[in-house]
Write a protein that binds this DNA or RNA. Sequence first.
DNA 1: AATGATACATAAAACAATTAGGTATAAGCG
DNA 2: CGCTTATACCTAATTGTTTTATGTATCATT
Lengths: 118, 118
Amino acid sequence: MYSQELLKGTLQTIVLSLLAENQRMYGYEITQHVKDKTAGEIQLTEGALYPTLHKLEAEGFLTTEKVSIGKRVRKYYSLTEVGNKQANDKVNEFRRFSETMNDLLNSFNPNPELQWLS
Amino acid sequence: MYSQELLKGTLQTIVLSLLAENQRMYGYEITQHVKDKTAGEIQLTEGALYPTLHKLEAEGFLTTEKVSIGKRVRKYYSLTEVGNKQANDKVNEFRRFSETMNDLLNSFNPNPELQWLS
DNA sequence: AATGATACATAAAACAATTAGGTATAAGCG
DNA sequence: CGCTTATACCTAATTGTTTTATGTATCATT
């Protein structure tokens, strides 16, 4: 697990990119997906996730549909057209950002695993 | 300029890594250094920087010395031994984090610039 | 019957960063 | 000389996100 502070500001990006990949997901599924794909290194808390989903919906990036599973109601989220564009923008921005940061940090103690590049 | 939200949680890492690289820097110098090295893409605000420097000092990661430049007083910050270790830890953590994030985001719309890798 | 997993949600508190302000010296320019 | 920009420090109020804590309820397993 990373110190959670690094995660700040990346939650929307994560959610949008997963939805771009999977078309339709529900909240709990998103948390599990992230946990699995990152070997538990990133764990979304529900207290952060649900408000974010609601916000993205209110902003027009997501739409919802409720599906009954037995007596439970699952709430599926999908990207709108604008949301799809937003997903692209956010993912690209993160990539650019992480490159910039890594350049900045590489001046000091270059990553041993990248030594062979130079 | 990136949307500032991505910067959240990285400020300490940036400050610590620059000090590991330069031995001795003052606040204003740090802001300029970051701005120059990132072509203006990352700009630290003073309202965020100074409290962070004070906090890192209070936590024992930094020491200060005041130097008079004419009538002005510059406050130089240096890493303590613990601070040096912390710099390493923080930088490594960021690197691991950005790798994890990029893996997570790469499932969707893999970065065209990395296509040749696969 | 109890526990853990699934599945949604909100509200109070904590925390970091932005915004906006304050002080002061030094340098450059018309 | 006066104005503006750059240098250089700082803090306080507000904003915004996340954590922590809590609540509800179904379903599966032991």
